[in-house]
Amino acid sequence: MKPILSIIGFFMVLLLSAGVTSAMNVTAVPSSVLVGENVSVNVSTSPDLASCTINVDFDDGTTTFVNCAGTVPYVCTNNLNHIYSTSGNYTITASSDCVLSPTGAPLLDVDTASVTVTFATPATSELTITRLQLSFDNGRAETTVNRNQPGLRANADLRFDGSGLLKGYWEVDGRVLSQVNQHLTYGKSIRLTSPAVPFLPTFVEGSHRVRLVITNPVNNISFPEAIYYVTSEESTAGLAPLRTAEPRNHADLAFVPQSFRWEGTTRAAMYLVEFFEREGEVPVAAAYTKGTAYDLPEAILTESFDSGKAYMWWVKSYDAEGNLVGASELAHFIFQ
């Protein structure tokens, strides 16, 4: 009989100890947060308890309690929110003076959860992409171009936290167009532009989808798409470059009539030369000419230009129907 009682006693102890160890539970989500961020703490008990109070110590000098009164015979469970104001490793401790129901046995249990609080700010966080917006030159994620139109490029405006090495690639219709590898440092948002060579392919008519796929940092991002549509109408703009020749870029010129020259293209029937004081403004002077040079007349020089000022100029070419077929880059000069 004695051995049987011993075995029964042993199993009772096991049962009670098992019940005690599983009676109190505390979890903290997330287990790693930034200073000022909320930690969600869940305190629960099982099995059923009689009326009691669970004390919760957040390990930062603050405590609270959960009153399980009225929960009987249900499991007592409570969600608490807590914000840590300083960094460090914290142990959240839940303890109680509860008694088990229906035996009335005391529940002398303690459970803990750990929380690591760091002081990272957006600047000191790991590199994370927080916003990605695609657009074309019209500012929208959609554009329509003619077939073989040169120079089509997409823009990606990125906002990010942290600093690090950004890796990814531009993709058109699921095919890699070019790689992107660039160190980013926290600050203003940046704009990445798809490459000039090769620019987005425009020889296949129909809809095409562009994405910037980022492989580092690894983010669970549904990368947005931009759509461009290529019509069957051939682009009048040629790929052949239109380059200014003289005067040399950033030349200092005497304030006398000057000759402006460029390299011609066979498709051009007419050229338009425009002079600017500042980029984006209305030209101070302009001229149409059929040749590949423009001799600035003295009358226009003295009317529209000033000595000592810096100017810019470019040339555009038109075909016989008046379609724009080329444009040079802006070149700078100064009239002394």
Binding site: A141, E142, F223, P224, E225, A226
Partner: peptide
Amino acid sequence: SFGIYDAD
């Protein structure tokens, strides 16, 4: 929305 990803 179309063309835009935002973590928030």
